[in-house]
Simulated scan of single mutants.
Amino acid sequence: MRLVDTHCHLDLEAFDEDRAQVLARARASGVERILVVGFAPERWESALRLAQSEPDVAVAVGLHPTEAARYNDEVEAGIREAAMSPSVCAIGEIGLDYHWMTAPAEVQRRAFLRQIALAREMDLPFIVHQRDAAEDTLDALQEAGPPHRGVMHCFTGDLTYAERCLAMGMYLGIGGAVTFRKATDLHEVVRSVPLDRLVLETDAPYMTPSPHRGKRNEPSYLRFIVERVAELRDTSVEEVAEATTANAARLFNLDIDGRAA
């Protein structure tokens, strides 16, 4: 079984004590490629350092919506410069977050749209974070001019919302929430949408799947997500693994060995 974890934060301090062991467990479980998402300038640096020492780590760089108040021409230039690294395969995570609301909605939207434009300029896909901002996120994506090349990270919406995202060209990032018993809307989405539009992610150290919910997440737990997706779709784990790995390679321009093409 070959898997790609398309979204995690393995550079965070949560892994400082045992990062090498976490990586070893991921590889032993079939995770061949890990996309570490740097969501602020200090995180771009740590993610790129990790990729320099670990050839199966790829990187995304961007400014998270909770950091949107920091966005300016200098930050944008920093993203552009970081994205020129051969380890970088996406811009992200970017989007809108109305749960924490650390910046006004219009400030978040402006940073979101500028980073979508930057992703297009650099011919890179982008990773969307949205929390409590579903309609405004779709509205911004529409303003930016679909079809898009990107993924809705940590997707937990219903089937109608999924279909609207897919219609704009987006992939759906399926993570630990799919293993939660009460996530019935997400279960319907996973059963219903085309398999070639799903990618898998852990968001480690966050969003830990069952049966480890409440503990630190890690990329090796991707196996619980692929197993649940296979169960919901009434198909084999091997089929889901093969399809979602191919999807990740196509979306993020990764070759068969998981290295940047």
Rank of each mutant, 00 (worst) to 15 (best):
A77V: 09
E135A: 13
Q142R: 10
D56P: 11
E74M: 13
W100F: 14
R43V: 09
L222Y: 01
D18V: 09
H129C: 05
V190I: 11
Y71T: 02
V189E: 06
R197Q: 12
M84K: 14
I225S: 09
E93W: 02
A105F: 00
T244G: 07
L50P: 11
V199P: 05
A140C: 05
G95W: 00
W100P: 12
R228H: 15
A140V: 00
H148N: 04
R149K: 13
G157D: 05
F224Q: 06
A167H: 08
P125D: 08
A260W: 11
C165A: 13
G157E: 03
A69V: 12
A69C: 09
F126S: 01
R181G: 12
R223K: 15
C8D: 02
E227I: 08
V178P: 13
E242T: 10
G30V: 05
R49A: 15
I256P: 08
H212D: 12
L172W: 07
A40M: 09
A26S: 09
E17N: 14
R43I: 09
V31M: 11
G145I: 07
M1A: 08
G176H: 10
S53T: 13
E45V: 03
A260P: 09
H64M: 00
D11H: 06
M122E: 14
A260E: 07
D234G: 13
T156D: 13
A243N: 06
V75D: 01
A26N: 06
A204H: 00
G145S: 03
E135W: 08
R19N: 01
A103D: 03
A51F: 10
S53C: 10
F224D: 07
N217V: 03
V22K: 02
P146F: 06
